[in-house]
């Protein structure tokens, strides 16, 4: 009997090896490259360079601002949409939400191409409004990831809670503010984490819109093109620290929308 249970456990060994070799080891190598220089000697230079160079610090501030505004715009568009759809009396709600999630499955580069052509037609030269176009591009790319988790949490709310609120004398507005809104926060947080981090790092959206401005992800790209593995590793480490902090603050039981998208 002991032997048999061992054989089931051992099925996990290949994946355990895979995770250690290609998920954990790459991160350790990042530490090595981030804290050494070209001749392999230990140094803090890459770290101090980042925090003393006005260009890299400017990039950090710009990406934080861009991510913040993009997240807010996504939230302002996604929350009402998700709320209206989740509380509607439509018979086939799941089909309707599918329509709002479907763009996730169309290759992002082709969707951004479409957006770029339309924006160029409207604005002429996209370089005139770099910040605005960055926000539009990122919102266009990430909006479905915000709508889905909010929709899911609101549909799962127990309708008895709202009835109770009404019985106790709350009007529709009060019931929303005191029951629905606080209880839908896990979905909001999950959506925010799906938008905020990519908005700091997904520089290809800006690249495609002919944007000359830089975000944190672009720094890795430019170090990569310059074969500067040490600088690139340090930026990756800084991003990792930010991602860890962000994840600690936004930890919820809500499933990852990237995975939940398949319904």
């Amino acid at each position: 009997m002991k032997n048999m249970s061992f054989s089931r456990k051992s099925l996990g060994i290949p994946y355990l090896l895979f995770l250690s070799l290609f998920v954990v080891a790459p991160l350790l190598v990042l530490f090595y490259y981030g804290f050494t220089n070209g001749s392999g000697r230990f140094t803090f230079e890459n770290l101090t360079d980042f925090f003393t160079n006005p260009n890299t610090l400017g990039t950090l501030c710009y990406s934080l601002a861009l991510a913040l505004v993009t997240t807010l715009v996504c939230l302002l568009l996604a929350y009402p949409t998700a709320y209206i759809l989740a509380t509607s009396k439509l018979k086939r709600r799941s089909v309707v939400i599918m329509l709002f999630v479907m763009p996730m499955w169309i290759n992002f580069s082709l969707r951004i191409t479409a957006l770029k052509e339309v924006l160029t037609w409207i604005e002429g030269n996209l370089a005139y409004y770099p910040f605005l176009n960055s926000v539009i591009g990122m919102t266009y790319d990430f909006l479905p990831f915000m709508i889905l988790p909010i929709f899911n949490t609101i549909t799962r709310l127990d309708p008895a809670l709202l009835e109770a609120a009404r019985d106790l004398g709350a009007d529709e507005k009060e019931a929303f503010l005191k029951v629905t809104l606080p209880l839908s926060m896990p979905g909001v947080i999950s959506g925010v984490s799906m938008v905020f981090l990519p908005a700091m790092t997904n520089y290809v959206v800006l690249d495609m819109l002919y944007n000359s401005t830089y975000i944190m992800g672009s720094l890795i790209g430019s170090y990569f093109s310059a074969y500067n593995w040490h600088g690139g590793s340090m930026i990756s480490l800084i991003l990792l620290v930010m991602i860890c902090l962000f994840t600690l603050f936004t930890k919820t039981e809500e499933e990852n929308p990237r995975g939940g998208a398949l319904l």
Binding site: P26, L197, S233, I243
Partner: peptide, 27 residues
């Protein structure tokens, strides 16, 4: 296992791609 499994899920794709390149190609 579940915690390690979460790393690529949460991590930015830029960092995932770059770190794999550094390990396999550079190192």
């Amino acid at each position: 296992m579940s915690t390690t499994n979460q790393i690529p899920v949460i991590n930015a794709d830029v960092v995932t791609g770059f770190s794999i390149c550094i390990l396999l190609v550079v190192a």
